[in-house]
Design a binder for these strands. Sequence first.
DNA 1: TAATTTTTATACCAAATGGTAAAAAACTTA
DNA 2: TAAGTTTTTTACCATTTGGTATAAAAATTA
Lengths: 215, 215
Amino acid sequence: MVEKKTKRTKQSINREELESRILRSAEVLFAEKGYSGSSMEAIAAAASISKQNLIYYFANKELLYKRVLKEMLDIWIEKLSFLETQGDTPEAVIRRYVREKMALSRLYPNGSKVFAHEIISGAPVLKEYLMSHLKPQFDRDVVLVKSWINKGLVDDIDPEHLFFTIWAATQTYADFSVQMEVLLGKKRLGDADFERAELAVTDFVVRALGAKKNN
Amino acid sequence: MVEKKTKRTKQSINREELESRILRSAEVLFAEKGYSGSSMEAIAAAASISKQNLIYYFANKELLYKRVLKEMLDIWIEKLSFLETQGDTPEAVIRRYVREKMALSRLYPNGSKVFAHEIISGAPVLKEYLMSHLKPQFDRDVVLVKSWINKGLVDDIDPEHLFFTIWAATQTYADFSVQMEVLLGKKRLGDADFERAELAVTDFVVRALGAKKNN
DNA sequence: TAATTTTTATACCAAATGGTAAAAAACTTA
DNA sequence: TAAGTTTTTTACCATTTGGTATAAAAATTA
């Protein structure tokens, strides 16, 4: 029981492959039906395996749910901690921030929806994680915006609520996509819609900031 | 079987009272646990009646769910069809619109959450309603904003995405309140928070519009 | 007061669900 | 190829859940 190094055998490759297939299937179902509305059997069927085999990979539903959430959050934490990019103008930083956040809505609509369901439900699973991981980053980012204000680089806006607005305005393109499809009279939001959305939201935010063009 | 007019007897009064107590209880549970996560027994318990008695008032769960949704939407449709208030400056109209929408988040957080769950889940119940009721109003409001743009009253922004942003930025104070509580380090969002939020969001939008002060 | 209607409680049930137990099958490695 | 390990399948089960059937109790009306 020493050299148990995880060799990339045929099995372990399949395992990884199957695991992520399960996670993606679960993500879709949790997004559409919520936690309670997604049965293990349905998730298994979506991944084309038996329920018992699913349980072999993920011992119980809660574990599976937490994995789906954690996967999504890890991506977010990674992608959204770049407000610290020093040296750029506030406008450049904000534009990049909005672009990144919008890309997450486009690339991970299901993960975004699972996250939304979770938060709306009171974040029973994620509350701790938000406190320990998101809040520190949030506080830092707020300080940065405040420093912009103090230096006169942007107008005297409300930093906390600026972030709430940015998050909401970008997140909505994942969560409420169905509503938009109905209102825009489209079957699906396409790349063009997301580009227009990104442009619109970015401009709103930049204009709201009153960011000075000359750094 | 003729004079079956609904007299306001002691019973019918109780009936109304109990019905709305049930609806409020259901709303809370649907908001927190989603449709599948809310059992009829739990809803009954929350309303302090027996499950069988609940079923006497609402024959099945889907009906109850639809009633909760419809209640919320009727309020929205009513409150959010005032972009037509002619004669006011765009800024005044927008400020009032944002204020009203924000008030809905403050006054009906649970209904808002149930609505959000429903939309995120693909609006299986509400899709038709959105098409028949929300889209016409949306189209009218977009036309109004476009007329503002043509008259040079506001900058050349993207009307559709303007509304998406306003809705998202206001709705988020109901749906994602838990996240904000964590980030702001508060147990509960209070009136003061909502006032600050309303101010911030209104200003963002007005500044984004570039609304001319002089009509 | 008697008849009728409305409300509440008791008993019950079929289907679905999360999960266990155990063994067969497939794969890896010595 | 044989032993050991990992993966998959089959069988099963206790609990929960939405809902039915039925009748007792309470209120209203004739």
